[in-house]
């Protein structure tokens, strides 16, 4: 039972982080379908940092270094989306999809190259971080507290305050709703959209490293992040682009995702004798059902997905 709670919280943390990333991008008017790729690259940054960080630098510096690496990787990677979609007005769906594929391919190539360089017989795309992982976990009784739970909470508060209480948030949302209006009062729409995309990179990168640290202690980069980026987008839609609701939605989805990891701990569920595949499918099926009921009355930012062109008014 405790295990279920623990996994629910961890997965919810991932979803909150990534969904908030999507939320920032969309409020600025750009659909970031490439979050999946951003997560992979962010995770790669963090994993590489764990691998190369000097031994015995202490828990706190290690955590900070890993976070910084993930954030930097995620942000830089998301700028690929920014260049294409904001400056060159490319189709956001194509570019997002390309970034997802590119993320996994690039991470695999890089990790394999590193592995092969150190040991010519090692052609795997796996990075191990058994010891480093311990830095992120504090045992409270039998409950494994993961620092990312706190980070996600902080990120949530920051997102809420930024969007609703600051000048920046007001301007950002104006760009996603009515960029012409924003432009007419002298707000630089391109700049704000860049900000939205880069912030989504920050959050996506954090979500990525959080995801690969959620349960396992090594990660095979060929696998990507198993559609979590898209689950996060679903969470965002379910949360109606509002941080507080996103948090609620993330908990629900996190619960079902956690169930697939922990169902064998429940005698009742084991006795149902359902194969693991069904539990694996659960979050995606729930997601579809939820979307089917919530998409009709969407409060999506009105101008999302439409490239802004100064000339068109």
């Amino acid at each position: 039972m405790l295990l279920l709670v623990q996994y629910t919280l961890v997965f919810a943390s991932v979803l909150i982080l990534v969904a908030l990333g999507g939320c920032f991008a969309e409020h600025s008017g750009v659909i970031n379908l490439g979050l999946e790729g951003v997560m992979v690259i962010g995770a790669l940054g963090g994993a590489l940092m764990m691998r190369y960080a000097p031994d015995g630098i202490g828990t706190f510096p290690l955590i900070m270094l890993v976070l910084i690496a993930s954030v930097v990787f995620g942000t830089v990677y998301s700028s690929l989306l920014g260049v294409a979609c904001i400056n060159f007005k490319a189709n956001q769906t194509i570019v997002g999809t390309a970034l997802n594929m590119l993320g996994t391919a690039a991470a695999t190539v890089i990790v394999k190259a590193i592995n092969t360089a150190t040991n010519p017989n090692d052609v795997s795309s796996t990075i191990q971080y058994v010891d480093e992982k311990k830095a992120f976990i504090v045992n409270i009784g039998s409950f494994e507290f993961n620092w990312f739970m706190l980070i996600a909470l902080i990120a949530l508060v920051i997102a809420y305050v930024t969007l609703y209480k600051t000048k920046f948030g007001l301007r950002l949302m104006a760009c996603g709703e009515h960029p012409q209006a924003a432009d007419s009062v002298g707000i630089n729409v391109y700049k704000m959209r860049w900000a939205g995309v880069l912030i989504s990179g920050v959050y996506g990168g954090l979500g990525g490293i959080c995801y690969i640290l959620s349960g396992v202690s090594e990660w095979k980069f060929e696998n990507g992040v198993a559609g979590f980026g898209f689950l996060a987008l679903a969470v965002m839609i379910f949360g109606q682009w509002k941080p507080s609701r996103i948090a609620m939605a993330a908990l629900i989805f996190g619960f079902f995702r956690a169930l697939s990891n922990t169902y064998f701990g429940f005698d009742f569920l084991v006795s149902l004798d359902i194969t693991g595949s069904v539990y694996n499918m659960m979050p995606y099926i729930i997601c579809l059902i939820v979307l089917a009921f919530t998409s009709k009355k969407s409060r999506a930012p009105k101008a999302e997905g439409i490239p802004y062109d100064k000339g068109q008014r």
Binding site: F88, K89, V95, P120
Partner: peptide, 26 residues
Amino acid sequence: DKTMYCSQISDLISSLIIYLCGFVFF
């Protein structure tokens, strides 16, 4: 040459090509 590179380099190239396809309109 597997001692230096991996076969996913082609995946990398094809995903780069899709990314660049986003610029076709431009």
